[in-house]
Design a protein around this nucleic acid. Structure first.
Lengths: 248, 248
DNA sequence: CAAGCAAGCATCTTCGAAAATCTGCGCGTG
DNA sequence: CACGCGCAGATTTTCGAAGATGCTTGCTTG
């Protein structure tokens, strides 16, 4: 599938580079750019309508996050994925989510509760829909899901824990989305989300942490179970050149 | 102190942007650019001899690492520091170092042992010197110290644990170096380093972890004890404009 | 025919000019 | 005198041309 770039989503992005960064990151996370694919400036320029310098800036931003890789004079590539990396990321991610939510529940105030209720409401509204409809509005679901999980841990007092959690969340999201391209949309996790939310609001920190951890582990298991389908298992180094796309 | 940029240190850096990145990061870590200071392109251009685009690329790289901050149309600033942030970073850093070294000791092979012995030797050679001499060769010590700590954990099988550890190490190093500008150079930690190395080579994973954690906690305590001296405690937002430097 | 070499092409990397934006100052006005 | 307005200078942001590098193809040679 030739990548089709996300349209401008946030007209409020003050900087072009920030807007490009957001869209590019989203397109890498949801697999519009396949893992390992080269990111050529000519194509990116066409897709995002930004200058080369601006694109380089956005890609440089993604470099330390581990979403793209750079080798000298050969340009940027989307970071590769592997079952091993997935297990590594997932183990740390589960742990960070758990620790974040425990601390968040313990120190959350009224504003946190309100934010959580709102985020859950938005997510539940989409998750109540039929599978087909959920699929059609998957990008909405993605944002709502992300916001819900962020709302759960938002009151965690450790900025660094949240920061690292966010990094790992991104990578897990990429694995989920890339794998989803090769299989059916799974069943809704509405009940699980609700249980976590209720535990959090009831201030049962440990319970919320355990539920969240189980929820995440299950997701990882699902992805791993389908891993061979979306990880072509060690194709030869460097990947075959992509067939020339249909052009404009 | 007007910042004086690090001279080209790695002639083997293939990309100008990578070279600039290395030097700029080093200069931020050791406080040549004070926390909160604005990073003006005119000045950076003069200091590093690189074009604006290249500088932007390097700064974009430092953005997700949390070493610089960006607000739209107002440019980049060195990330601010605070005792609260230091405690946050330190707690996670200690934990990550401990976990990394435990796993590293458990799965380290011959090559790891050799690397550790070598790194310790290099570090010890500098730490045996007198205080004055250590001060004179502080940049050498910095590299040796960094390499030693990296060698300790190098065999940890989790790439992500190592990656996050490295991020936190950088931030802790900045706190150490910025605080050191305002006080005497502390006593050598040679004995502690040796004890950690010996425990690691003796495959006493838990012991090595505990020693390392204690070593790091002590360092943080020292820095925190001197915090008021290098953290001017909430100067008014935006800081006074720096006096015009002597110019070229 | 295999290996080595060179030209041509594709692509990346660097750079600073031009446009956009912000900040500070001086002036006029209520 | 306080306040708002608008201009001038300072700074950031964007962009693509020009140079540098790597890859491929086709030719030459042993």
């Amino acid at each position: 599938m030739p990548p089709r770039a996300t349209p401008h989503a946030e007209p409020d992005a003050v900087l072009v580079s920030q807007d490009v960064l957001t869209r590019l990151k989203g397109d890498i996370l949801d697999g519009a750019f396949a893992p390992g694919a080269r990111l050529r400036f000519a194509e990116l320029q066409r897709l995002y309508g930004a200058g080369i310098g601006t694109l380089r800036e956005a890609l440089s931003h993604l470099l330390p996050e581990g979403l793209v890789e750079l080798d000298a004079n050969r340009g940027f590539r989307v970071a590769v994925i592997s079952a091993e990396d997935l297990r590594d990321v997932s183990a740390l991610h589960v742990e960070f989510e758990q620790r974040s939510i425990v601390e968040s529940v313990r120190s959350g105030d009224d504003a946190w509760e309100a934010g959580l209720v709102l985020a859950f409401h938005r997510l539940a509204k989409i998750e109540r829909l039929s599978r087909d409809e959920r699929k059609a509005r998957s990008s909405e679901w993605l944002v709502a899901h992300r916001d819900f999980h962020r709302a759960l841990v938002a009151a965690c007092p450790s900025r660094w824990l949240l920061r690292l959690r966010a990094q790992l969340y991104d990578h897990m999201e990429r694995y989920r989305l890339v794998s989803q391209r090769h299989r059916q949309l799974g069943p809704s996790k509405r009940a699980e989300h609700e249980a976590i939310k209720d535990a959090a609001l009831a201030r049962k920190a440990e319970l919320a942490g355990d539920l969240l951890a189980a929820h995440l582990r299950e997701t990882t298991e699902t992805v791993l179970r389908h891993a061979p389908q979306f990880m072509p298992a060690a194709t030869e180094r460097g990947r075959a050149r992509q067939p020339r796309s249909p052009t404009a």
